[in-house]
Simulated assay, not measured.
Amino acid sequence: MRKLGMLLESIINDCLGLPPNFLKQFNDDRNWDFMAALRYFPASDTEKNGITEHEDGNSITFVIQDDVGGLQVRHNGQWIPVVPAQDTIVVNIADVIQV
């Protein structure tokens, strides 16, 4: 996952037209990298599962959905469902990149 993160960081850097290794200089100390596996069970009629509306404070988030789905993104004030696609990983570019 670390190698994948570094590769995506480089690709994002290039796609944004930034100077070479611009993003790397802000994340060169890999000691702060972390990985968390979160699993949310499907909601039922009596309880909701998952997490509330939030922003990811890190750089890159990998989301692997099952066929139940539930992931949404906010765009222009509207919540848009991210339809699960088999064998795919959603890559979310988070707040640190925006800053």
Rank of each mutant, 00 (worst) to 15 (best):
D28T: 07
D28L: 11
D28P: 03
D28A: 13
D28Q: 10
D29Q: 09
R30P: 08
N31M: 11
N31V: 13
N31T: 13
W32A: 10
F34A: 14
F34T: 11
M35A: 15
M35V: 15
M35R: 06
M35T: 12
M35D: 14
A36R: 04
A36F: 08
A37M: 10
A37I: 11
L38R: 00
L38G: 07
L38C: 12
L38E: 02
L38V: 09
R39M: 15
R39Q: 12
R39K: 11
Y40L: 11
Y40W: 15
Y40K: 03
Y40P: 09
F41T: 13
P42S: 15
P42W: 14
P42E: 12
P42Q: 15
P42G: 15
A43S: 14
S44M: 09
S44P: 07
S44F: 14
S44D: 05
D45K: 12
D45N: 10
D45L: 15
D45W: 13
D45E: 14
T46L: 15
T46S: 15
E47C: 14
E47V: 13
E47T: 13
E47R: 08
E47H: 15
K48M: 05
K48D: 01
K48N: 03
K48C: 03
K48V: 04
K48E: 01
K48L: 08
K48H: 02
N49D: 01
N49A: 06
G50H: 00
G50F: 02
I51K: 00
I51E: 00
I51C: 01
I51T: 02
T52E: 06
E53G: 00
H54V: 04
E55T: 07
E55D: 09
E55C: 09
D56I: 02
G57Q: 01
N58D: 06
N58Q: 03
S59I: 02
I60T: 01
T61F: 04
T61M: 00
T61N: 02
T61W: 02
F62L: 07
F62N: 00
F62S: 02
V63E: 01
V63I: 08
I64G: 12
I64H: 11
I64N: 07
I64A: 14
Q65N: 12
Q65Y: 08
D66G: 15
D66I: 11
D67G: 08
D67V: 08
V68P: 11
V68W: 04
V68G: 10
G69H: 12
G69Y: 11
G70L: 06
G70S: 04
G70I: 05
Q72N: 07
Q72E: 07
V73E: 04
V73T: 03
V73P: 03
R74E: 02
R74H: 01
H75Q: 03
H75I: 02
H75P: 01
N76P: 09
N76S: 11
G77C: 11
G77A: 10
G77H: 04
